[in-house]
C-alpha cells in the first residue's frame, strides 16, 4: 500500500506536467487579450498596449512563455497579475480563508444532509419519508444556483430582512458579535451550495445503499440478532461508501477552487470570483496559478480516493 501510494505520487509529477502544458496551451490559444479595456479607450495610444504586451512578455512564442512560466513556478514565483500588478500568490492567499470557510462548510452541510437522509431513505424505499426526501432532492438539483440564490435573497434579505446578502470579508465587530455576523452572512451562500450539492449526493447515497442493503450478508447480520443501527452503520454503509468516496473526492478540490456562480451572487470574495474575473480579463498568470493548484488537488484527492477504496474493500488489489 505504501509503495503503491509512493509510486502513484511519482506518476503524478509527469501527469501534472502534462496537465500544466495543456492548460497553458488552452489559455494561450483561447481568444482574448488582457489589455482589451485599454483598446476600447481612445485616449490610450496603441503603443501603450504594445509596450505593455512586450513588457509582460506576451508577444513571445507560446513555448517560450511556457518554459518561462514553468521555471519561475518551480522556484516558487507564480508571477504577477496583469490586471492588478500584484503577485499572484498574494492574491490567492488573500482569498483562500474565505473560500475554505464558505465552500468547506457548504460541502460539509451537503454531506450532513446526504448521508443520513440517503441512508435512511434507502432502508425504507418508497416509504413516505423516502418520497418526500426524493421530491426535495429533485427540486434541489433541478433549480440552478443562480436561481435559488436570488430566491433566497428575496425571501431572507428583502422580504424578511433577516440576513445580509453582501458578504464582507472584514467585519469591524469583535468577540461573539464577530462570529455571529460572519455566521449570518455565510448562511445563505453555504445553504445554496450545500443544498444543491446535498440534493444530488442524497440520490447517490440512496442508490449506493440500496445496492447493498438487500445482499445476503446483511440478512445474515440481521439474523445474527444485531441491532438495526449496527447493521446499517457497520455493514451496509461501509460497503456503500465507495461511490460516495468517489464523489466527495471529486468535489474536494472545489473547496479550494470556489463556486463561481454563488460567489458572484453573494459577492463572496473567494477564489471562484477571482478566477472568473481573471478569465474575463484574460489575466493568464492568475488563471494559470489557480487552475494549476486546482489540478494538483484533483490528482491528489482522486489518488486518496483510490487508496480509500482499498481500506473500504480490502479485496481491491493494488497492482
Amino acid at each position: 500500500m505504501g509503495r503503491y501510494f509512493l509510486r502513484r505520487l511519482l506518476i503524478a509529477i509527469p501527469s501534472l506536467l502534462g496537465i500544466s502544458l495543456v492548460l497553458f496551451a488552452v489559455l494561450a490559444l483561447a481568444p482574448g487579450d488582457p489589455f482589451e479595456e485599454l483598446a476600447t479607450n481612445p485616449n490610450v495610444p496603441a503603443e501603450v498596449r504594445a509596450n505593455l504586451r512586450a513588457q509582460f512578455g506576451l508577444d513571445d512564442p507560446v513555448a517560450i512563455r511556457y518554459v518561462r512560466w514553468f521555471t519561475a513556478m518551480t522556484k516558487g514565483d507564480w508571477g504577477f497579475s496583469f490586471v492588478s500588478r500584484v503577485d499572484v500568490d498574494q492574491l490567492i492567499l488573500q482569498r483562500l480563508p474565505t473560500t475554505l470557510l464558505v465552500i468547506g462548510s457548504s460541502q460539509l452541510l451537503a454531506l450532513l444532509i446526504a448521508l443520513p437522509i440517503g441512508v435512511y431513505a434507502a432502508t425504507r424505499p418508497y416509504s413516505l419519508f423516502d418520497q418526500i426526501a426524493n421530491t426535495f432532492a429533485f427540486i434541489g438539483f433541478s433549480l440552478p444556483t443562480f436561481f435559488t440564490g436570488i430566491l433566497f435573497i428575496l425571501i431572507f434579505s428583502i422580504t424578511l430582512d433577516w440576513l445580509p446578502f453582501i458578504y464582507r470579508a472584514d467585519i469591524s465587530a469583535t468577540g461573539w458579535h464577530w462570529y455571529w455576523e460572519h455566521f449570518k452572512q455565510a448562511l445563505m451562500p453555504v445553504a445554496v451550495l450545500g443544498l444543491f450539492q446535498g440534493a444530488s449526493w442524497t440520490r447517490y447515497v440512496r442508490s449506493a445503499v440500496l445496492d447493498v442493503i438487500r445482499l445476503d450478508y446483511v440478512t445474515t447480520a440481521r439474523s445474527k440478532g444485531l441491532g438495526e443501527i449496527t447493521v446499517v452503520v457497520k455493514h451496509v454503509v461501509r460497503n456503500a461508501l465507495i461511490p460516495v468516496v468517489t464523489l466527495v473526492a471529486l468535489q474536494m478540490p472545489a473547496i479550494f477552487g470556489g463556486a463561481i456562480v454563488t460567489e458572484q451572487i453573494f459577492r463572496v470574495p473567494g477564489i471562484g470570483s477571482l478566477l472568473i474575473s481573471s478569465i474575463l480579463a484574460n489575466d493568464t498568470p492568475v488563471i494559470m496559478a489557480v487552475t494549476f493548484v486546482f489540478s494538483c488537488l484533483v490528482i491528489l484527492f482522486n489518488l486518496l480516493a483510490d487508496v480509500l477504496y482499498g481500506w473500504l474493500d480490502p479485496r481491491i488489489s493494488y497492482r
Partner: peptide
C-alpha cells in the same frame, strides 16, 4: 465593495439599505 451584478447592487441600496 466590489463584485456581483448590477441588479443585486441596486437591491442593496434601494431595497435593503445595506449600502
Amino acid at each position: 465593495k466590489g463584485g456581483g451584478d448590477a441588479v443585486s447592487a441596486a437591491r442593496a441600496v434601494m431595497q435593503t439599505g445595506e449600502f
